[in-house]
């Protein structure tokens, strides 16, 4: 599925929730359930230190598609990571570069992507894009 389609699917899913509490409960569930990264990749090299929470990101190229794994020490941050990975992982680097994160606003989680939150997510998205640039160059070479 293309990134846009996945994002629309996520927006659709979130539209079923009546209030913030249901959204948060869903995110917490996501944050608790998914093993998002292999323990061996939770290294200092892969860490993004926010003031509030830490995020680990790892990227690998598989058949010209970029596969992301990530994690956080905070559950809500991890829940958002799960959503971001669902949208951006297993996609072509160029498609990742062309995509935006507007859908996070639309599912009512905008505040978590605010730079003032300093939870590492803004830097994480930047990092996903940087990986995409790097691997795109690699593919072109």
């Amino acid at each position: 599925m293309e990134i846009k389609e996945i994002q629309e699917e996520i927006i659709d899913e979130f539209s079923m929730f009546d209030d913030w509490m249901q959204r948060y409960e869903y995110m917490i569930e996501l944050g608790k359930s998914l093993p998002l990264i292999k323990e061996e990749f939770k290294t200092d090299d892969n860490i993004i230190k926010g003031c509030q929470s830490k995020v680990w990101v790892h990227a690998e190229l598989e058949e010209n598609k970029l596969v992301f794994t990530a994690d956080s020490d905070a559950i809500i941050t991890k829940g958002i990571i799960a959503i971001l990975i669902r949208a951006f992982s297993n996609q072509k680097p160029q498609d990742i570069l062309d995509a935006d994160t507007q859908f996070i606003d639309e599912i009512g989680l905008k505040e978590h992507l605010s730079p003032t939150r300093a939870n590492g997510l803004v830097s994480m998205i930047k990092q996903l894009k940087l990986y995409a640039v790097a691997y795109q160059t690699q593919i072109e070479d």
């Binding site: 913030w20 948060y24 917490i28 509030q52 929470s53 905070a74 559950i75 809500i76 941050t77 939870n119």
Partner: peptide, 12 residues
């Protein structure tokens, strides 16, 4: 409980 999670819910 991570403080970030606690703070996010208290804000709500």
């Amino acid at each position: 409980v991570h403080p970030y999670d606690m703070g996010s819910i208290l804000d709500k």
